[in-house]
C-alpha cells in the first residue's frame, strides 16, 4: 500500500502525543500541511527522516512567509520529499513577531543551510543553532529585511518631462554635440 499523507500525520501524532500538531485547513490549501510547534521541530524532522517507512530523506526547499496583520506574524515552511515513496509533505512553524526565532534543521538536512540564510536575509528570522547565519543574497551591509510586508519595494519614479521639473526636451543646440555622421568603411 502506498504511503499516504494521512498515515504520516498519524505516525507523527503517535510518536509525539503531547505536541500541538494541527492540520492547515482552507478551501484552496492544495498540499497536505501540518502546523507543528517550533520546540519539537528538530526532533520531528529527525524522526521523519530516519523512520524506515516514512524515509523523508530530502528537503527540497524551505522558506518563510510574512502574514503581517495576523498574529503570530511569521511562519516558516518546510517541504519534505520521500524519494522511495514519491511523497511530499509540508510542515509549518508559526513564529511571533518579537524576536522571531526558530531552531535550525541544518543538522538534519545540510541543504537547509542556504535556505535558512536566505530566509534570515529576507525576513530577519533567526535560526538558532545555524553554523553561519549571515546575509546571502543581499550585500552584507544592507539594513532592513526586504521581504517583510512593511518594507517598501523601493520603486524609483521614471523621469519623464511631466514629473521632473528640470528635465527639458533635447534642444536643437544639442545636435552639435552628437557625433558627426561618417562613413566607417573607406571605399
Amino acid at each position: 500500500m502506498p504511503l499516504t499523507p494521512e498515515r504520516v500525520e498519524q505516525k507523527l501524532r503517535e510518536r509525539f502525543p503531547d505536541a500541538a500538531i494541527e492540520r492547515q485547513t482552507g478551501d484552496a490549501v492544495r498540499d497536505y500541511t501540518l502546523y507543528v510547534p517550533g520546540e519539537s521541530l528538530v526532533e520531528m524532522c529527525t524522526f521523519l527522516r530516519d523512520d524506515a517507512e516514512l524515509d523523508f530523506g530530502m528537503l527540497p526547499w524551505m522558506g518563510g512567509c510574512d502574514h503581517m496583520p495576523a498574529v503570530p506574524r511569521f511562519e516558516t515552511v518546510y517541504n519534505l520529499l520521500s524519494l522511495s515513496n514519491s511523497l511530499r509533505f509540508t510542515l509549518k512553524v508559526r513564529i511571533a513577531e518579537e524576536q522571531p526565532r526558530v531552531p535550525s534543521v541544518v543538522a538534519v538536512w545540510p541543504t537547509a543551510n542556504w535556505h535558512e540564510r536566505e530566509t534570515y536575509d529576507f525576513y530577519g528570522i533567526e535560526f538558532t543553532g545555524h553554523p553561519e547565519l549571515t546575509r546571502i543574497l543581499l550585500p552584507d551591509d544592507w539594513v532592513g529585511w526586504p521581504l517583510r510586508k512593511d518594507s517598501p519595494l523601493g520603486y524609483e519614479e521614471v523621469a519623464f518631462t511631466h514629473n521632473t521639473p528640470n528635465r527639458r526636451l533635447p534642444s536643437p543646440s544639442l545636435k552639435k554635440l552628437a557625433p558627426k555622421k561618417v562613413k566607417y568603411r573607406a571605399q
Partner: peptide, 8 residues
C-alpha cells in the same frame, strides 16, 4: 482572483 490558499 484565486481562492484563499496556497499551492506548490
Amino acid at each position: 482572483f484565486p481562492p484563499v490558499g496556497e499551492a506548490y
